[in-house]
Design a protein around this nucleic acid. Sequence first.
DNA 1: TCTTGATCCCGTAGTCGCTACGGTGTTCAT
DNA 2: ATGAACACCGTAGCGACTACGGGATCAAGA
Lengths: 134, 134
Amino acid sequence: MSALSIGRLGERAGVNIETIRYYERIGLLPEPARSLAGYRLYAEDHLRRLRFIRRGRDLGFSIEAIRTLLRLAEHPDQPCADADRLAAEHLADVERKIEELTRLSEELGKMTRCCADSVAQCRIIDALGATEYE
Amino acid sequence: MSALSIGRLGERAGVNIETIRYYERIGLLPEPARSLAGYRLYAEDHLRRLRFIRRGRDLGFSIEAIRTLLRLAEHPDQPCADADRLAAEHLADVERKIEELTRLSEELGKMTRCCADSVAQCRIIDALGATEYE
DNA sequence: TCTTGATCCCGTAGTCGCTACGGTGTTCAT
DNA sequence: ATGAACACCGTAGCGACTACGGGATCAAGA
């Protein structure tokens, strides 16, 4: 009972309306029923699915990964090795990215708090101009 | 002397040819001279500028930030407060992102190494299905 | 009942920073 | 002279949305 409009659905799942329609277009969220006037009418199932998607996105999974995870979630009797592999790969990605950004912030840290008077002595401009390839 | 073809320029700056033409299109790299046949002929100045751009991108600066930094670099007599602010803001962005990813990797770490037999008991699928908004 | 403002519809285009494609012309070494 | 390698150009694609424009519909108050 009590079908949700797209606006209410978005509110309750924490997802933008345009994004919901986008998920429908790419086949991530199934097409809902429609009112006589053509308005989308969502059921509780859609809400659960959309929350699953949002949570996956929050955790940084790609749309395609989420598509796979949703397929898995629909088959509770099957082994979950695939889900585990997906998550492990994603975790490795995230850890690589953290390392990368950490190196970056160290370099940026060295550059900033430049106390020079003019661009001519500026550490930042200097660092960018540094030649290291030849 | 010794003008560079786009391929040689790309090699020496560590930048893809298509990317160089893209930078030209968006006005980041000035249009070079052309040979009779219409081939681009780059001078040393282009190489310096392109390396500046690449280094900026490596450090994660946006194209627009680099555009500003380039403008600054062209006026060595001016104060470098703007460059300092840009770099500091970027550093803050990077640090925020690191924090975010660290939280993420912790959550993912809890999820992975799931030893369940089936999706029904899978921690990963479970975590995604968890309701927290209402 | 009328009106007003919020909500919804749809299709399309824009965002960022490239990267790829396709078809043609040029250069260079053998 | 031939063939590989390189260059030209314009356009479209990527991922994951987000925004826009112009119209239809709904709910609530006067």
